[in-house]
Simulated assay, not measured.
Amino acid sequence: MNTPHVVVVMGVAGTGKTTIGPLLAARLGVPYAEGDDFHPQSNIAKMSAGTPLTDDDRWPWLDAIGDWAQGRAGLGGVVSCSALKRSYRDRLRAAAPGVVFVHLTGDRALIEDRMSHRQGHFMPTALLDSQFATLQPLEPDEAGVAVNVTGSPEEITERAATALTALSEPTP
């Protein structure tokens, strides 16, 4: 990517946003912000108890991420955020026009397996079904790319960086 963009690494829980986000930020030479750090404690408590968040729970979280992204406009940055619904991505774009999305995608069984092996995270695998039910993939008019999460973190990061470069190149 030629100009510094703010990239939102999105996808359902367990796709590797927290792993790929920092690797992609390093690859692009920009700062990384962990989206989970923007959640109020009440959201973390709900998810830890296995209760899916409502849109009302998510708005302040999305606004905080949007504020961070807006502050990085023209400077670049990478932030992780599930951004599962179009309305969530629209809210982020309203706060920070020009954000670009990297949608990490993968087979449900692979993602569930990865979630079951991670330690110290508040999101239980029981909420994975609600994540997939909520997911609205990127639409053609949204600036972003879909990247499959098979392979090593380094391979996934390289695919994401290559796709972002292709996205920013003018079409002949």
Rank of each mutant, 00 (worst) to 15 (best):
G144I: 07
L84N: 11
L53T: 10
M47E: 09
A64D: 08
A73L: 05
M47H: 02
A83V: 05
N148L: 06
R93H: 01
L62E: 09
V79G: 05
F132Y: 15
A126P: 09
T51S: 09
T134A: 09
G98S: 10
R86K: 13
A109Y: 00
D141Q: 04
D67K: 12
F122C: 00
Q70E: 13
Q70L: 10
L92M: 08
R118I: 04
R118Y: 04
V102G: 04
G76K: 10
L62P: 12
R89Q: 03
A146P: 09
G71D: 13
G71W: 14
G98V: 06
R86Q: 12
A69K: 00
T105A: 13
A69V: 03
R114S: 04
Q136E: 15
F132V: 12
V99N: 01
L92S: 07
I111K: 01
M47L: 00
T51R: 15
D141E: 12
D56L: 02
W61F: 12
T134N: 03
P153N: 02
Q41E: 14
W68D: 04
R114M: 06
D56Y: 03
R118T: 01
L84C: 04
R108D: 13
L84K: 06
N43S: 06
E139H: 07
A73K: 12
N148H: 12
L135C: 02
A45L: 11
L128K: 04
P52Q: 15
W59A: 01
A83D: 07
A64G: 11
R91G: 07
V79H: 12
N43V: 09
T105F: 01
Q119S: 13
G120S: 06
Q136S: 13
N148Q: 14
S48Q: 15
G50K: 03
T105L: 04
S116Q: 09
D90R: 12
T125Q: 05
L110G: 12
D141M: 01
E112H: 02
A73D: 11
L138W: 08
T125M: 05
V149H: 05
V145Y: 02
S152Y: 10
L84D: 02
S130T: 14
S48C: 02
G98R: 01
P124Y: 09
G77F: 10
T134D: 06
V149N: 02
V102C: 10
S116N: 12
Y88N: 07
C81K: 01
I44R: 15
W59S: 04
G66L: 03
D141T: 08
T51E: 13
D129K: 11
G66S: 08
L135R: 11
D107E: 15
R108H: 10
L92G: 06
G77V: 03
S116P: 01
Q131L: 03
L128S: 01
A95Q: 14
I111Y: 07
A146W: 07
P52Y: 09
W68F: 13
L110K: 05
G144C: 09
A126S: 15
G50Q: 05
A49D: 11
K85W: 02
R58M: 00
T54S: 14
W61D: 09
D55W: 05
